[in-house]
Every structure is written in structure tokens, then in C-alpha cells.
Design a protein around this nucleic acid. Structure first.
Lengths: 189, 189, 189, 189
DNA sequence: GATGAATGAGAGTTCATTCAT
DNA sequence: CATGAATGAACTCTCATTCAT
């Protein structure tokens, strides 16, 4: 039931926004009563926090695996981009909430999520640092800013990308990896 | 007075979000009463619509000038990126509202804004198309998707960029132009 | 278990008030679940009724003994005052609920308790009547009103008296008996 | 209107209790809507606080005058008792709320009211101290405890006294003054 | 005996909006 | 132009109570 409520909430938050979705909307959608909602969740914010936590925890976990498994830094970057882009199809609504609705977390909860987001960002930054050291990427790059550029490319996709449109997530991942790698690779030969 | 109300609203919407900001918050901030607000604005949504309209109209106007004045497509791209990034300093709050708060427009108004946003996007796409034709940019690029990538890089900056931090908007514009152009330029020689 | 629930309830009702204490508060305090509560009590009101009933039944029982055992009416008054005041130490919370939370009984139950309270009051009144007849107390006293005065002195003590403060309940009982008896005794010879 | 709301609230709080009276009850009684209530009061607690404040401020003010105007301490005591008892007729509901509903004030507000209540009590205590010194009252009395006894007599009257019953407030004031003064006066001659 | 999930009514509060003055 | 009183709908959340297991 908790799962059920969460599922419907994610869908509604994504469509209408967190503040614009009422508890009534949620329970009507699930087909239960308000009392039930508050049996499972202490507050509306707690529900939002759970959505955020799950999402970023899962992302961090998979990012870790990718970084551990890929051999060179170019591939690591490509795989991280792929990770985020392929998720649009399976995790789209979750991702959109994750990217838009942090304002509605309490300071305490927001801090927890922010720390994890930073971790995710620093992991990418680290790959770029190592890619520069290994000669894969251009020496003059500023890893921190490039990381923000990469995240801009991937995260913004959650705003416009339609996985059932004429470009598939798989194709998009390749195209964006290509764009990013051209942007940062050192000249060959 | 209308200007005054708009100014305070922009600041508040950016800090707390549109739904989370009450008319009371706005009029308290300005130092007038609710009656006054409704003398100048038909509704809260109309205020939001005006903020959106102004912002995108101004952006389109300046984009047009840039495209007209720059000679080659590389410079056009660089100048458009600069346009968006430099704005973070002067138009940050407006920009953030523009990027986040479209959900709260009525369908009718949202459609108007969406059309203008598309125009802005198509103008960039057109530059890329022409850059490919002129040989400046790589033949295999998909202009539409590259446009989304570029907008991702610039728009996402409104989320994290602090114009009074250790990287200035001017530096960031150069760094991001460089990144994007490396990503799309045809191999020389 | 029923005893256990009642004990914890009395403590909570006294601290926060009947309406302000939820069934959840009670069962959390006891360490059981709501289902259990409703196994032992038909309703929250029934619990309150039992607390009231026990308290006044016990009081009436002990008042009866005191009146039967004491020889003169002065001693009867003194012993009744002692009875109520000493209880602050052992029955404080029960007493406070008894004095404050009658509003939350249904009419039917309230009537039952009111009848018993009246009985308690009339018993005191009767002692005063007999004391006047015997010449112990002043002729001009109005027994009914004096009874209310005595009850005011004793009952109000439940509001402010701290049995572990610098006056003990034993001392207070003596002081208040003295005050009351001076107030009603006939001038001696 | 604020006055109107307060008046109806006092009546309802007295009848049903603060927690048991809903904002809906209040506005239905006045004939306005909930919005109006919150136009005049920040919260339900603020309304309660205003009722408490007014009541104790008025009481303190009048107590001060009585103490200043009466010549001997016996009269001061008698007049203070009269003050409280006569109020049952005109201020009954206010008084009952004052005596019963302090639990529902926030700690901050409760502290303010408690301080004023203590002032009222200390003023009586002071009269007793001076009466002992002047020889009017018995030497062995403990002023603090006697004060509580006197307040018990008067305050408890708010619970049972019916000003339109067969004893008038004026008569009761005389009877209770007489009872109290007999209780504390030094033996004459 | 005891649990835990579920209910439904109602609580206090907020808020965009209206309108007579 | 501007105010301030008033509305009514909706909001988040609480709670006594029920009942299948």
C-alpha cells in the first residue's frame, strides 16, 4: 500500500507539482482515504523525502558500479551519461521530481539530499580529473565546471525528452556522449 | 507601482516558488494591501504570465540582434551562450522563474510562452544547420538534439551558478562556449 | 492490563487534559496497540467514567467511615478536610481529573457522578447542621454555603499544592482545619 | 466584530471547553465564516490569550484600587472577596475560562498569565502579612497558605454559584467575608 | 487477547479573490 | 488609487473507532 501510494504520488507530483498536488488528489487516485495516507506517512514532506532518497541512493549505487567496471575515463563518462539518459524511460517521473522539487523539503532533509547530490557530482568530477591526468581529456579543462556542463546536458533532457518520440533514449545517449566527449577529448596524434 | 509589485514578486517567487508565495507575502513585501494588487493584476496567474512574457520577449529580441550581427556561425553560437550566461547576473531570479514555473500558467498562456520558447530554440537550431552547411560544424550532428544539449548547459547554470562566487559569468561564458564549440566543430585541416 | 491502561491514562489526562490526550498517546505510553484499548474499553468516555466512578466511590466510602468514627462535629470536619488534603499526595492526578474533566462525560454518566458528588457534599452539610444544633458551630451559619466554602479550600489545593514542596500534606491539613474551624466555631464561654 | 467573536467564544468555551469548541462552532454562532475569524485572530490560541489577558488585567487593576482605598486590612480582605464574588454575575463565563483553560496556552503565553496571577495572589498575601503585623489577624497564620485558602473559597464559587438562584452574589460575598474573617481574626479583648 | 490496517468526519489554518467605501 | 473586511473553498493533518486476522 505504501508502495502504491508512492507510485501514484510520483505520477501526480510530476504532472502537477508537489505543492499543487493535494493529499486528497493522491488518495483519490489510489482509491483509499486520507486516514490511510497518514497511517503510512507522517507528513506530505516525508513522502517527498522518501521519493528523493530512493532516487538518489539508486543513482549513486549504479554510478559506483559503472565507475568501477569501465576501464578508461572516456568510457566512464559515456556510461554515466547513458545511465542518466536511459533512466528517462524507466525513471522519468521520479527524475523530474528529483530535479524540480527540492524546495519543498525541510532544511534538514534538503541537506541530506544535497550531500548525496554533491557526491554524485564529485564522482563525475573525479573521472574528469583522472581523464586529464591520463591525457584522455584536454589539460585546460576546469573539471568542476565541465561537470556542471555535462549534468546540464543530461538533466535538461528530463524536461523535453519524450522516450516514445522519434529519438530513442539509447540513440540520445550515444549522441550526447559523442557531443560531450568531442567537447573534452584531447586532440589525437 | 505595478513595476514595484512585479519586482518584489520575482524575488519571492524565486526564493519560495510561485505556489508557495501568497499574495499576502507579496503585498507585505511591497508595503501595500491586497486591494492594490488586484487593482494592477487581474489574478496571480496574470502576474506570472507578465513575468514570463517580458523575459522571453527580451531574450528573443536580443537573440535576434546577436544572430544578425555576428558573421560566422561559431560566433553566433558563442554569443548566444554568452547572452544566456551573462544574464544570470542581471536576470537570475527572472530566469529561474522562467525555467521552473511554467506549470502554473493556464493552458492558454502556457501555449503562448511555449511558442516563444520554441522560437528561441529554433533560432539556435537554424544556426547549427547553417554551420553544418558552411562546414564549420560536423556533418553528422543532429541540430535539434544539439540545440537541446546547448540549452541544457546554459539553462542548468541558473540552478547552481553563483555570480559572486569564484568564477565570474564572463569566465563561465567563455568556458562553456569553448566546451560546446569543441563538441560540434568540424576537424580542421 | 485494564488497570495498566487506566493508570497511564490518569497520568496523561492530568498532564494534558482529556480532550488533548489521544488514544494513541495512551497506548503508546502503555506499550500496546489501539486494538487492545478497545478490547478493554468501549470508548474513551467509558474510561473517563471509570476513573470518575472509582474516585468518588472511594471518597464516599472513606467519608462514611470518618463520619461514623469521630465523636464530635469539629473532629468530623477536621477529618474530612484531612481526608481530601492527604489524598493530594496519593491520589493527586485522579483528583485533578475528577475536579476538571466532568464536561467530557455524556449527560447520562455526568448525572450519575453528579449525584454522588452531591451526596458527598450533603454529608458535609449534615455535619455542619448537627454542629450548629450541638452548639459547636455558630448559629448564623448557612450550612449549604459553608460547605461550598470548605470544599473550595480543599479542592482548590489540588491546583497549586505540591506534596514534595516545603509544606507537607499533613501540615496543610492541620492548617486548613484550623482555618475552617476558626471560621465556623461558636465563641467559647 | 473582533469583540463580537470574542463574546461568542467566551460563551462557548465556558459551556463546552476550549478544546471542545471548534472554530466552526464559533463562526456559526457569530454568523460569519472561518476566513473572518482568521482575519481578526492569528490562531485559536491567540483568542484564548486575549480572553485571559483582559480578564486578569482588569482584575489586577480593580484589586489595586481596593487595596489603596480601604483603611484597615480586614476591609481590604472583605473587599477583595467581594470583588471576586460579585464578578460571578457580570464576568462569570470569563472567570470560568480563566480558572479552567490555562493548559491550552503556549508556554510563552502561559508564563505571562502565570506571572500576573501570582501578582494577584501576592497582593492578598501582603494584606494578610500587614494584618498580622497590625494585630488584626492571628499571629500564627501562614500568609501564603491562607491566601490559597481564601482563593479556594472564592474561585470555587465560579463552579457552583448561580447568580440567579436563591442566594445573590451580594449575600454570598458577605457570608464568605464573614467566614474568612472569623477564620483569621485575632481574638478580641 | 492482541494486532495493524483502514475509515470518515472534522480539526485548525491558508489563501486567492471580491467589493463597498 | 487604495483600503480593509469578508468569503468560501481547499489545504494538511488528527483522531476515535472498527474489524478481519
Amino acid at each position: 500500500m505504501k508502495e502504491e501510494i508512492t507510485r501514484h504520488s510520483v505520477k501526480l507530483f510530476q504532472q502537477k507539482g508537489f505543492s499543487e498536488t493535494s493529499i486528497q488528489d493522491i488518495v483519490d487516485s489510489v482509491g483509499v482515504t486520507k486516514g490511510s495516507f497518514y497511517y503510512y506517512f507522517k507528513s506530505k514532506e516525508q513522502l517527498l523525502m522518501e521519493i528523493h532518497s530512493r532516487y538518489i541512493d539508486d543513482l549513486l549505487h549504479r554510478q559506483k558500479k559503472v565507475i568501477a567496471n569501465e576501464e578508461n575515463n572516456q568510457n566512464k563518462i559515456a556510461k554515466i551519461i547513458e545511465l542518466i539518459i536511459l533512466d528517462i524511460k524507466t525513471q522519468g517521473p521520479n527524475g523530474r521530481i528529483y530535479l524540480r522539487e527540492m524546495r519543498n523539503l525541510s532544511k534538514k532533509n534538503a541537506d541530506i539530499i544535497k550531500a548525496k547530490r554533491s557526491k554524485f557530482r564529485h564522482n563525475i568530477e573525479q573521472v574528469i580529473v583522472e581523464g586529464i591526468e591520463s591525457g584522455e581529456f584536454r589539460k585546460e579543462l576546469q573539471p568542476k565546471l565541465i561537470t556542471f556542463a555535462v549534468l546540464g546536458v543530461t538533466n535538461w533532457s528530463y524536461q523535453w525528452m519524450n522516450p516514445s518520440g522519434d529519438v530513442s533514449v539509447e540513440e540520445l545517449a550515444v549522441i550526447f556522449s559523442d557531443f560531450v566527449l568531442h567537447g573534452i577529448q584531447a586532440k589525437e596524434g
